[in-house]
Every structure is written in C-alpha cells, then in structure tokens.
C-alpha cells in the first residue's frame, strides 16, 4: 500500500501504524517513507508491504494494491505521483468530503473509497492536520488483514514511540476504532508484473546537455510550490493600509505590490507559511484551509 500526503500530516506514521499492526498480526512487513530535501507541506510518500512470506522487494511501490491519499489537493498534482499505477489498484482511498465531486469529473477509473478523516481527527483530537491514525486505520480496514484490536496495538506502539501522553493516545485509539468501523474491506487480487523494460542505449550527448548545470535563469518559478500549501492566506483589501509589511516579510518573494501599492499574493508559489498573517498589524490577512476537489 502507498500513502500520500504532505510533510506534517503524519504520512510516515500512518504507514508505520499499519506496518506495526500487521507485524503484530504475524505478517512479514516492510515500511518506508521517501522524501527529498524539502519541508513541511511538501508532498510525502510512504510505503507498507505486507506478506505472509519473506518480502523480496524494496523501495518505491509502482503498482500498489491500495493507494491512501491524505490530501485531495494532491490529486491535481502529477508530480506528487498519487495516481501512478492507479489503474491496477484495488482501491483509491481519499480523505475528502467531496467524493461525489471527484467522481463527477469522471477522470479516475478505479474503485474509490472516501471518508472525511480531517473532520473526524479534528473532532476526536482537536488537531485537524494529524492524519496518521485516521489514515492508518483506513488502510488497515481496507486491507482486510488486520483486526481492530491489532490496529489499536499498532496505534499504541507507534504513538508511544513518538512520546504522546496516555490521554492523547486514548483519543487516537477511539479515532482509529471509529474509522475502522465506518469502512469495509476491499478485495485485492494478485497481479502480474509489467513486461520487460525497454533499455536505453545511451550515447554521448554534448557537454552542455550532459553536465548538471542550469542555464535558464529563474526556472525555480516552474516549480509550483503553492501546491505545498495547507493553509491559504487571504488579504482583506477593505482594511489593508498598504503598509507593505507582508511584502517585506514574505520569505519566498511570493507577495508583490500592485500599482496602487496593494499586496498581491502569488498563489502558485506561496507555501502557506502564514508569516504575512503574523506580521499584518491590522489583522487584514486571514487563513483558510485549502480544500480543492476535482
């Protein structure tokens, strides 16, 4: 199974909760996260393999049986890779309240399962972004390999390792039970590997191509770091005094001033750090959770 979310969502922990639960249930297990030199809010992927005999694979999962997507906004971003191998997956789980809207787009030809994990997490533990337990519980239930009790053991083991106190662990256990009870197991069929790879015969390319240098100036613009945003700053222009503090403090230069001196946020590159919101002396910047459906 492959988990997707953003740095800070607990995606690695979700993969470990299922991993530990399956291990305690007597399976062979392998779990691992993958992330680059990035940070909070950037897409994160984690993997859990569960088998009844030795696991002879490693690294990324290109043909997942289950895809667990913790953030529906990632569905829009090809670079996040949520949909890689989706055609053969037994199910795609999405943390959303907008499943019908996503379905109506007609873009995805896979069994889709949805539950609003964010809302349930917020209700149970008061912190909407801590998705690890809800997503782990969803994966455990969908897999059909893990009982509710074993899931609870996985949750307890992992959260204790992270140093959470007993009352918080109890709340998370209730959340895990709730999510587990609301979902049903999906059937996973064994599948064949893909065909022999087409190996490239690499020749010598001109030194300009074959050297890791960058010619195009300012091409970081092509990397739309706005996709990392969990919270979206919005400016109330009625109360904005054009003091320019948000413009000065934005660490990414994602706020410009227009001809009248009003700040304008470049949402393609704003990472949602909300330093502008903290700096605004008039509290003219508010934050909204990013929810975008297809």
């Amino acid at each position: 199974m492959r988990f997707h979310g953003r740095g800070g969502h607990g995606i690695k922990t979700a993969s470990r909760i299922v991993g530990t639960a399956a291990f305690l249930a007597g399976y062979e297990v392998q779990d691992s996260p993958i992330y680059g030199a990035e940070r909070r809010g950037a897409p994160v992927t984690a993997f859990t393999r569960i088998a009844s005999s030795a696991i002879l694979e490693r690294g990324v999962i290109t043909q997942p049986d289950l895809i667990i997507c913790g953030d529906e906004t990632l569905l829009e971003s090809p670079a996040s890779g949520v949909l890689n191998g989706v055609e053969q997956a037994a199910a795609l789980f999405i943390n959303t309240r907008n499943l019908e809207a996503i379905r109506a787009q007609g873009k995805l030809h896979v069994r889709m399962v949805a539950l609003d994990i964010t809302q349930r997490t917020s209700d149970r533990i008061g912190k909407a972004s801590a998705l690890s337990v809800g997503l782990g519980a969803a994966a455990a239930r969908l897999s059909g390999l893990i009982s509710c009790e074993q899931l609870g053991e996985g949750v307890r083991t992992e959260l204790e390792e992270l140093g959470l106190d007993a009352p918080m662990i109890e709340k998370n256990l209730l959340l895990a039970q709730e999510v587990y009870a609301e979902l049903e197991t999906v059937t996973v069929e064994p599948r064949k590997f893909s065909a022999t790879a087409v190996i490239h015969k690499m020749g010598y390319d001109h030194v300009l191509l074959g050297t890791p240098s960058i010619l195009a100036p300012g091409n970081a613009e092509a990397r739309q770091t706005g996709a990392w945003r969990v919270e979206r700053p919005e400016i109330d222009y009625d109360s904005c005094t054009r003091c320019g503090l948000c413009f000065v403090h934005c660490p990414d230069g994602a706020i410009a001033l227009d001809e009248q001196g009003y700040p304008v946020i470049d949402y393609d590159h704003c990472k949602g750090c909300l330093i502008c919101l903290e700096q605004c002396p008039r509290h003219s910047i508010r934050s909204k959770k990013e929810v975008r459906s297809w």
Binding site: I199, H200, M202, L208, L209
Partner: peptide
C-alpha cells in the same frame, strides 16, 4: 547501464527546463 527509454525522456524534459536543448 540499466536505464529505460522512459527515464531518458524524463531527464530530457528536466534538461529543457534547465534551458538546454538538443544539439547542446
């Protein structure tokens, strides 16, 4: 080298973002 045609295409796309084109 174990490296697929598809991977070569990915690298060429990255090179073009870096401002490089065929022929150097």
């Amino acid at each position: 080298l174990l490296f697929t045609d598809a991977e070569y295409e990915q690298v060429r796309m990255a090179l073009s973002i870096a401002g490089k084109s065929q022929g150097g």
